[in-house]
């Protein structure tokens, strides 16, 4: 099972991940075309900063996702094989129950379409666009099994 691993120590808040994410989720999947075509596309990853720490934040695809429990339509579901929290936009009615419960604040509201948007781990790519675009290795896409348990814990929690 692959995971997006974040190392805030390495994040320079360059926002490359946000741009790459927005382009990947544009219909054309190309920056120039997206800009010229005036496509409305938004990133599903956001770099937060408080002056000391920079943190790229997106859906964590939680093991026990609060959003899936809160979703009253079945639009959000946990895929037990891939571990992804899948979003089926056609089932979303914009009730914002998931927005109310996600403790990471990682679910965006699209107020015009009345649906949510969130990280889908880039199903059309080998590895997510944010990890590809990150110039410092702050965002890495790795098989979790590649990490020894302790190392993984270190990576996730020790900064």
């Amino acid at each position: 099972m692959e995971q997006i691993l974040i190392n805030p120590d390495r994040c320079l808040s360059c926002h490359s991940c946000e741009l790459a994410c927005a382009v990947e989720h544009a219909l054309s999947k190309e920056l120039l075309a997206a800009v010229l075509g005036k496509e409305s596309t938004k990133p599903r990853i956001f770099v937060e900063t408080d002056g000391e720490t920079n943190l790229p934040l997106q859906c964590r695809h939680c093991q026990e996702p609060m959003c899936v429990n809160a979703c009253m339509t079945g639009a959000l579901a946990k895929d037990s094989t891939t571990g992804k929290v899948l979003f089926h936009q056609d089932k979303c009615v914009g009730c914002w129950m998931c927005v109310m419960t996600c403790p990471f604040g990682a679910i965006e509201q699209d107020m015009s379409q009345k649906v949510i948007s969130k990280c889908d781990r880039c199903p059309d790519r080998e590895q997510p666009a944010c990890a590809d675009a990150c110039p410092t290795g702050a965002i890495r896409y790795t098989k979790v099994a590649d990490f020894a348990h302790d190392q993984r814990k270190h990576y996730l929690t020790n900064w």
């Binding site: 998931c98 927005v99 109310m100 419960t101 604040g105 509201q109």
Partner: peptide, 8 residues
């Protein structure tokens, strides 16, 4: 109501 879950 953006990011309301942070409060929750």
């Amino acid at each position: 109501t953006s990011r309301a879950g942070l409060y929750t």
